[in-house]
Amino acid sequence: MDSQQSSGFVQAIRLGKQVTTSEGPLVILDDINFSVPAGTSVAILGASGSGKTTLLGLLAGLDVASTGRVMINDIDLGELDEDGRALLRAGSVGFVFQNFQLLSGLTALENVMLPLELASDSKPKEVAKDILSRVGLVERLHHYPSQLSGGEQQRCAIARAFAASPEVLFADEPTGNLDLTTGKRIIDLLFELNREQGTTLIMATHDEALAGLCETRLNLQGGRLVQ
């Protein structure tokens, strides 16, 4: 993959992660190298324990690498401190999680407003309503997560992820907690919004069919990329 200067470009260079355990150091990721051009989609495939979630955490700047570098828009995340990475996320990054991660005390509307409010958006309510109607939840604005079905919760989470128009969207097993039919609808929605907004999509999954929808596949085994 060639280097591209447009925003949404993600790159991993000799990326590694290891933790210390009582039985010595444990390597979770080792020498990971790849680039994701802006606006494209990548699936990180692998079995449970292969390091998918760790890699996603490192790419999104939620965790710090032991070795190597992660670049987003040519900015080295390793050179930023925790707050610097947060600011980068605020401007460019969105998330969709397997367990939705909606805040239980907030309504659907408030959950979607949250990233907009944190970014001091001037009209968080209007934007959130707009995107919620886009994902078909206009009737559910004032419902709490516990009052929504699994599919509705994930649609709400997708609305939240796209609300602040991120350049890069990270998705961690987005259909992992959903049945097949619901999962398919969610994926369609995700890719549709992704195309509309021209977002770079990086998705961790163990679902081959889902990975097949992405332009690029990265196979992770025992912490290393294999072809």
Binding site: E82, D83, A90, V93
Partner: peptide, 16 residues
């Protein structure tokens, strides 16, 4: 804890 993690994830700094 979950809210704070989500805030951090969406780009809120520790001070914020």
């Amino acid at each position: 804890f979950d809210s704070a993690a989500i805030y951090r994830c969406f780009g809120a700094t520790q001070n914020k």
